[in-house]
Nucleic acid binder design. Structure first.
Lengths: 386, 386
DNA sequence: GCTTCGGATCTACACGTGTAGCGTCCCACC
DNA sequence: GGTGGGACGCTACACGTGTAGATCCGAAGC
């Protein structure tokens, strides 16, 4: 393209200065190559690339740009990061990237970071403390400008993590404040209360809880909120089952609940447990919501497209992501700061809403796609051919 | 820990050599700091860190390790990468990371790369060619050692991508060979035939296809396989609807199919379209599989936990990931090489299998969790408390 | 005409690392 | 006793970049 002699000004046989036996076999153009081709010094190229601290004559700039284009020059990020103290990179440590909630969270974080011109290094600790320590070491070595953790282990101050000194850190998906750390999370306790209260309004009285073990010994606010709502409704405590935060966990949890207790509703502490529970119920022929209602916490796409669609407390993931990045970007905020965002009750079919006669208020949610978030996949555009 | 005087040998007020107004405000320990504290030259530290090209006396090594530990030293990856020609990093460009298939694929790639001591830089092009070009520039700037693409746009040789010269590239999720590129993918055509044949065995004769537009104009092998299987069964072509590869797309596609055509089965070209189609059917009171059977392509967890569970052609994601990395790691393999992996028919409920009397052969799949892949979420371990 | 000044460019250097080149010391072997 | 060689350590330098300091030159001000 752009009629330049094709292959005239190649990167030149560089690296023939002294000894040093070719550490890099690849042949990417370097700043010096561009400078040589444009007939200027290497500083000028830098000024052009960065709209540098010194002005460059229009004609010279054009020559440099032309040379850059011809060589396909891309500045070496390693060298840049080395020279500046900062990579424009943030590290994200997720406990389970296969959970769609974290998947969506990650996606929103990436988008938010992109808006700031930063990029994310994403790693999955798979709930393994040793792996997490390695990951942190690696991220520190990569000179990340900040660190985001969903992993519960992050609360432990392990000896190696003294290296974090100086690197701003924010814990996301955090139910409450943690001493010495800045944290972001949804009001899970309030969400649990809201959901249970909603079930009570539907006349449910024997509400079981499917929940898991958090990495730490601290009490799960969802459990607390569930208990609180039951008591304030004058109901006895319901059965609890603790299973992993997975689809299989929810499946097993619902089975256990059905076998050993008499429940007319199940509160699953995240969406995938809820989906697992639904499957267990359906397989046994238990009707949802007629026999047993199900609600869950998260409100991801998966809760919207399962059958029946799950009533859920939806976390405001885009807001959470934006808040986390904002907090990370202002390292002078006090350690111990916790930002709690509310959740939204999304009423769908699994709790009993809209089964008999659809409440017009919830019709939009019950009838998919939602109109507002429906992309070009809207029903109107689907044409059948043959 | 490890009784060292706490805060005796700090990184020292470095960077006070000449002018240069403090480019890096952070205070991470550097190799020189470790050397100073250990009373050795900086080369020796390097030898210890890398099991260097020169031997180090046991006693000296111990002193260095102690100093490293005390300072929390982590070698600067930017400097390393600059000095070596190679970062141990691969770039992955995904078209839609929110699709659980790509989510799981990414996960498997990360695991496989980890086994090779490499890490992955993951970026989501969101089906946007301009964004993809930026991403590629960025990844090249990061000096990645290799590039993996799921994005369809990657097939276009855009002028900027001449920078890819020298960087090994592999296209994953690729239905067939592409000239000049090395590619990996499942035998989608064969999978489609297999699924349609299975539906025919269940007595279905009017099988609609829900599919999308691939980035390129080339025909989708799933469509071809679907058509082939119909013809070889002596059936007429069924209706086709083209919608985005999303849940909403599948929802709208199934709606359109139901409204304008008479079908007794739907073939969704990926899992999330299949899930969307299921919801559309359930909402209308169409019974699955009794009235309309549904099958899909991918076989992710989501197809396993929806209701009814989706019969699917399961892609062998771990094998695909391993193959892709292997191909990427052997850049001398011929350009144009294509590796095609078979898919496995996973018979679940949505096609009609195991509805009347569960076929003992498919019982394992129909009864969840699968036993073999059930982690510690197995039903036996769930105990109910109150 | 001389100085001043700012635009435009070049030269030089540091960022932290990996390693070649060059000692030094000590032990084993002839 | 001389000597070769291996173990061990240090100094020096390059990787590609960003930018401060120095240089050059033309125009403006006296």
């Amino acid at each position: 393209m752009s009629g330049g002699v094709p292959g005239s000004g190649e990167p030149s046989t560089r690296r023939s200065r002294r000894s040093d036996p070719e550490p890099a076999p690849r042949a990417l153009a370097t700043r010096a190559d561009v400078a040589r081709l444009a007939g200027v010094s290497s500083a000028v190229v830098s000024y052009v690339v960065n709209d540098g601290p010194r002005p460059v004559a229009a004609e010279t700039r054009a020559r440099v740009l032309q040379a850059m284009d011809q060589l396909g020059y891309v500045p070496n990020a390693s060298a840049r990061n080395l020279r500046r103290g900062s990579t424009q990179t943030l590290g994200l440590v997720v406990a389970d990237s296969q959970n769609p909630f974290f998947g969506q969270y990650t996606f929103e974080l990436v988008k938010a970071a992109e808006r700031q011109g930063k990029q994310l290094l994403i790693a999955d600790s798979r709930e393994d403390a040793a792996r997490e320590a390695d990951i942190v070491d690696n991220l520190v070595a990569q000179q990340v400008d900040g660190l985001l953790f969903t992993s519960a282990f992050a609360r432990v101050d392990r000896s190696r993590s003294l290296r974090l000194a100086g690197i701003p850190t924010v814990l996301i998906d955090c139910p409450g404040p943690v001493v010495g750390r800045r944290t972001v999370g949804s009001d899970a306790g309030g969400a649990a209360e809201m959901l249970v209260r909603h079930l009570v309004e539907h006349g449910r009285t024997r509400i079981g809880l499917v929940i898991g073990h958090r990495g730490f010994g601290d009490p799960d606010p969802r459990e607390h909120g569930w208990r609180l709502a039951l008591r304030s409704a004058g109901l006895p405590d319901g059965p609890i089952v603790r299973v992993p935060f997975t689809r299989e966990g929810g499946f097993a949890g619902a089975q256990a609940l059905l076998e050993s207790a008499d429940v007319d509703a199940i509160f699953a502490s995240n969406d995938i447990q809820g989906v697992g529970a639904l499957l267990a119920l359906q397989q046994r022929g238990v009707r949802v919501p007629d026999d047993v209602a199900v609600v869950s916490f998260d409100g991801t796409e998966e809760s919207r497209f399962c059958w029946p669609p799950l009533t859920a407390a939806r976390q405001r993931i885009p807001d959470l992501a934006a808040t986390a990045l904002e907090l990370l970007g202002t390292p002078d905020t006090e350690a111990g700061t916790h930002v709690s965002l509310p959740t939204d009750l999304v009423r769908r079919r699994s709790c009993g809403c809209g089964v008999a006669e659809p409440d017009p208020g919830v019709a939009a949610e019950l009838q998919l796609p939602d109109g507002e978030d429906a992309g070009d996949g809207g029903s109107a555009s689907a044409a059948v051919a043959t």
